[in-house]
Design a protein around this nucleic acid. Structure first.
Lengths: 231, 231
DNA sequence: TTCCATATTGGAACGGCGCTCCAGATGTGT
DNA sequence: ACACATCTGGAGCGCCGTTCCAATATGGAA
């Protein structure tokens, strides 16, 4: 025999939790939440369900792992600037990740409100919490300020992702916004007066601008309640 | 024959969309999201799937209808007071509804970010929007302010509902909070420094107080950005 | 009252899902 | 070379949402 041991020589790359999660993210990106199935996953990885279940407990855990992987990546980018700029950067990072992975919004909202013990909640809480801290918020109000920020970021980004997704792939995004606004404006004028008024503004503004306006509203509240901080 | 016509005399009450939605809500309340199944629904209503599908298009529509019914009920109560008090009242109404129907949070978040055209989004948007309007916010910022408020209310209430639910029925609610806080505090101290600090505060405060503190933070932002309004 | 078109019912069955079971292949330490 | 733990993948189970359709109830016209 030659010096190199002949060993291994697998037909395919060895199965691993990493490879499974990676494939799961690809399937989710390609076909949405219903596109992730153990059957197509086994086909994609050229294996059987038993092999996958050896590395992953169940589908829920797989979804958590996929979510965590994407979020970790989105929060990885370091930024430097004023606390306000940093909050913007983190928020836009999550916004972009949700925009690129439309299934992410629902997963984040579900995992946040179902199992705060999972890995995702602390990751986001920490990333935003540090910036809130840097804003000069007193410690006993960190949680309040960070909560408001986090729930708004995820909720608004999720709603935006829905807008870019529901329409036909080639259809203009504005078309869907118009459809939603139209649906709202078709409501009983007396009962939905304010909603109808808001429908117009919604489609006028640029997405990220509108998104950041909400963040600045929260930051204004922080500055008002805890003056002395540096924004 | 007597004066009263003998007519009808069904074995059971006539099936109707209302009765189906009502039963769906009961099943969701009793056993959570996975407790709502067409099989147990047919059993409960003593009928077959075909009968149900005559009144309801599919499970998604049933979930939307159930969500809408509960939300409409929660928002029905009229309140009078300062705009700030009214915002508090609406927010607490949703908070209580989510607390009483733990499945509601996930449904609201999903429906809000998946199909803003549905009946639920405008209902909440209108109820909060009117109060935001009364705060003196200029029209072009109604949507921004209402969005922030809405996403926070639903996100925070949902997270709270998870806390009251995950533990064993008889176990004290504080136990779960402690568990979450503990899980967070067990994280790498260097990497999750801020999260650990927040974990403590989370379990110290009363739920609704903590919840309202977030709302007041948003209202402070509104007051700061749009002075001249009356709170 | 009789009759019939229409509205409504519920049971059987289908395909697909998450998941379990387990016999065998594969790799490792002695 | 052998025994043992790790890892694989195919067969199949129970349950799901949903469809199909023959049977039944209903209400207006004759």
């Amino acid at each position: 025999m030659a010096t190199g041991t002949r060993r291994a020589q697998r037909r395919t790359e060895a199965l691993s939790r990493e490879r499974i999660v990676e494939a799961a993210v690809e399937l989710l990106d390609a076909a949405g939440e219903s596109g992730l199935t153990f059957r197509v996953l086994t086909e994609r990885l050229a294996t059987g369900p038993g092999a996958i279940y050896w590395h992953v407990a169940n589908k829920g855990e797989l979804l958590v792992a996929a979510t965590d992987a994407v979020v970790a990546d989105a929060l990885a980018a370091e930024s430097a600037g004023s606390p306000r700029e940093e909050v913007h950067a983190v928020a836009l990072g999550l916004f972009s990740a949700i925009d690129a992975h439309p299934w992410l919004a629902a997963q984040l909202l579900l995992q946040l409100s179902r199992s705060p013990g999972g890995p995702v909640t602390p990751r986001i809480l920490e990333s935003l919490g540090r910036r809130v801290r840097a804003l000069g918020v007193p410690e006993e109000h960190w949680f309040t300020a960070t909560s408001v920020l986090m729930h708004y970021v995820l909720g608004a980004a999720g709603q935006n992702a829905a807008n870019s997704q529901v329409t036909e792939p080639d259809a203009d995004r504005a078309e869907f916004l118009a459809a939603t606004a139209e649906a709202w404006e078709a409501l009983d004028p007396a009962e939905y007066e304010t909603t109808r008024a808001m429908a117009g503004q919604m489609s006028e503004h640029d997405d990220r601008e509108q998104f950041l306006a909400g963040i600045d509203l929260v930051l204004a509240g922080v500055a008002a309640l805890y003056p002395g901080g540096r924004a």
